[in-house]
Simulated assay, not measured.
Amino acid sequence: MAGLGQHITAMVRSHASGDEASFYSVALQIAAREAKAGHHVLANDIKKAVDASRERAPLGNVTTLAQPRGEIAELVEATHPDVHLRELVAAPDLVAQIKQVLAEQRQRKNLLDHGFTPAHRLLLEGPPGTGKTMTAAVLATELSLPMFTIRLDSLLSKFMGETASKLRLVFDAVAQRRAVYLFDEFDALGGDRSGNDVGEARRILNSFLVFLEEASPESLVLAATNHRAILDKALFRRFDAVLTYALPDARQAAAVIKARLGTLASGTSLAKLGDYTSGLSHAELVKAAETAAKTVLMRGERAVGREDLIVALTARRTASLG
């Protein structure tokens, strides 16, 4: 009984720390122990339960997923997004790329069975506020997966000296739990250091490249950057696709504003606002729409007028463009 007690203790500890691999390993050890003792039915039931659990785990059930536990909890932020592709305002070619990624992920078993790997390592690059984080949320929502965000700038500053080992923990999670993993502020890690190499930074980058190369196709690994030009060129060939984001044109800007205002935009013409929306990101357009909406609601009205929008957009352009 002492041996069984130790196994149960190990299982409880691995469950508490969120270490699924260790949990299954100990369960199989118990199955082997029972088989050796002649309890073959029980041993077989344990093995079947482990296999069934492993098959279900990669599918991801957003409603039942717990927050990360153990060391990994210090490194990632877990969310369960509810943002659909139809809500993303982007250029048609970018939307087509996202649809292709979704299609490959939904057919991943078919592709893998035939020796092809679905796109699962994506580099998202473009100005701030243009939809990179929203894209990660869209992928998570459309595939019914949780989303884990890793802020690399915080990881580097908080765990300098042990960053590579922390990255290993994250990529172990990539292999064990099907999800969307977003490495935000990727510039902090991926900056081109040629000619100005520091040993620790180079080792961290090399570790990331190795981990990325080996990343499980069961999960999606996304890296978001605002500064493609400074990225180390070695990074680009490690990604399955590069998604490029840009500031919205006048038509897209009007769509962003209309989506945020909802019924408050009823009867209001959003045409020919290009002079006021030019240079603003999706995020800034949303903030301008919210400012106009709050102004109108506080006046006791229920519709945002064109002039209200122009005032809000002008103020946002002045603040953002200097």
Score class of each variant (00 low, 15 high):
218 E>P: 00
71 E>M: 11
262 G>F: 08
196 N>L: 12
160 M>A: 15
319 A>K: 09
139 L>F: 07
206 N>C: 04
154 S>Q: 13
199 G>E: 09
168 R>M: 02
117 T>R: 13
77 E>G: 02
203 R>T: 08
188 A>W: 06
231 L>D: 02
208 F>M: 11
144 S>D: 15
162 E>S: 14
20 E>D: 11
18 G>C: 08
281 S>G: 07
113 D>K: 15
93 D>V: 02
79 T>Y: 02
189 L>D: 13
239 F>Y: 10
191 G>I: 02
118 P>L: 00
221 V>Y: 00
208 F>C: 05
232 D>C: 09
259 A>H: 10
274 G>A: 07
13 R>W: 02
310 I>F: 10
22 S>W: 01
122 L>C: 05
52 A>H: 12
173 A>D: 00
283 A>E: 08
63 T>Y: 03
152 L>P: 07
206 N>W: 02
121 R>E: 01
146 P>I: 07
285 L>T: 03
275 D>R: 15
249 D>W: 11
28 L>A: 01
293 A>I: 04
1 M>G: 12
147 M>I: 14
127 P>V: 10
273 L>I: 11
208 F>W: 08
58 P>D: 07
200 E>D: 07
134 M>Q: 12
68 P>R: 09
61 N>S: 09
72 I>H: 00
162 E>C: 03
222 L>I: 09
70 G>P: 09
35 A>R: 15
255 A>T: 06
54 R>F: 01
132 K>L: 12
321 L>S: 08
247 L>T: 03
218 E>A: 11
148 F>V: 03
276 Y>P: 00
48 K>F: 04
125 E>M: 04
64 T>G: 00
301 E>G: 05
158 K>H: 08
299 R>M: 14
220 L>N: 04
75 L>G: 03
41 V>F: 06
13 R>N: 11
133 T>F: 06
308 D>K: 13
307 E>G: 00
222 L>W: 01
35 A>D: 15
224 A>S: 13
6 Q>P: 00
201 A>G: 03
21 A>F: 01
217 P>C: 06
164 A>W: 02
159 F>K: 06
137 A>I: 01
303 A>Y: 05
248 P>L: 05
246 A>Y: 06
232 D>Y: 12
263 T>Q: 10
120 H>E: 02
21 A>Q: 14
3 G>M: 07
221 V>F: 03
79 T>K: 14
62 V>P: 09
242 V>P: 07
12 V>N: 01
229 A>T: 05
143 L>C: 11
278 S>P: 01
25 S>L: 10
105 Q>S: 11
97 Q>R: 12
216 S>N: 15
100 Q>N: 10
291 T>P: 03
193 R>H: 14
196 N>F: 05
272 K>D: 15
272 K>N: 14
153 D>H: 05
207 S>F: 00
